[in-house]
Design a protein around this nucleic acid. Structure first.
Lengths: 148, 148
DNA sequence: ATAAATTAAATTTGATACAATTTAATCACA
DNA sequence: TGTGATTAAATTGTATCAAATTTAATTTAT
């Protein structure tokens, strides 16, 4: 006698542990991000800006897989904190261009230690980190094709 | 000359693709879940109930990594849909016991095809599925130790 | 040149999520 | 036995998110 495979059993799901891991790890960032006054979404937004310095909302959303419904209020908050400026592109007023202020640039120094601190919370072998990284990007590549 | 490794570059993050994959895959469930009138969180809640038939909020939260702040309103909605009953445990009135109705039990048939449909959207080799499953559970095991 | 189509943000609505606090029930122990 | 500690839900406040609609700017096609 064998127990039949149930595709609707929670333990047989792949998405569920993915969903939980994502949430739990993001939660681990919180105490460190609190110190520099950012939420996780604000933090990944700042990461793009630390690379780009200046970018419009559309491109930012593409990098972060977020739309204006999330980004508009988030960017307004970062603007209120004095981390960036929001202004329309004179060449095409439909585009809103986001640019870091000096304060925004400087915040990177304060964030420097965060990735290491979270890595210590999570604990994963170097091999598993690489494997996981590759698989996740494979999924994202597959997803890009279908939609967007 | 070599470009120095920047731990704050978005492409060097592990959490970010995890966070995006989770959201994107959950999004893929939406059209299928819409058909049976559930959101993703409601769906995983129903999954536990299809296994357990009856469970209190505390245990449910432990299985799903959710707290009463999320579950209380969610369960009330499922109750309004006639999928479950909520009643206090007579032996310990602090506990709220959730029990599927017949309608809730029957919904499982309608959900049967969903895991396969989502798997087709995602596209991942059997090997990668197994690898990913193992790594995610390793992460969750490591997280269990630290907190909760 | 101008009406129609397209594009980018912003807005609105509904559903999560989490943290912190509150309420109610039960337990532990002096 | 009765008070303090603990526990389980519920509540409150803040931040995401997604989907759909709206607004404003630009582009395309006639």
């Amino acid at each position: 006698m064998q127990i039949p495979y149930d595709p609707l059993k929670l333990d047989n799901q792949l998405c569920f542990p993915l969903y939980v891991c994502s949430k739990e790890i993001v939660k681990r960032y919180k105490p460190f991000l609190d110190e520099i006054g950012l939420t996780y979404t604000q933090y990944i937004t700042m990461m793009v800006l630390w690379e780009e310095k200046s970018i419009n909302v559309k491109s930012l959303g593409k990098r972060l897989y977020l739309d204006s419904g999330t980004l508009t209020p988030l960017l307004k908050k970062l603007e209120n904190q004095g981390l960036l400026n929001r202004e329309r592109d004179p060449k095409d007023e439909r585009n809103l261009i986001v640019t870091l202020t000096q304060k925004g640039v400087d915040l990177k120094k304060a964030a420097k230690g965060i990735p290491d601190k979270v890595r210590q919370c999570v604990q994963l072998s170097a091999k598993d980190i690489i494997k996981l990284y590759r698989i996740l990007h494979k999924i994202l590549d597959g997803i890009e094709e279908n939609s967007s």
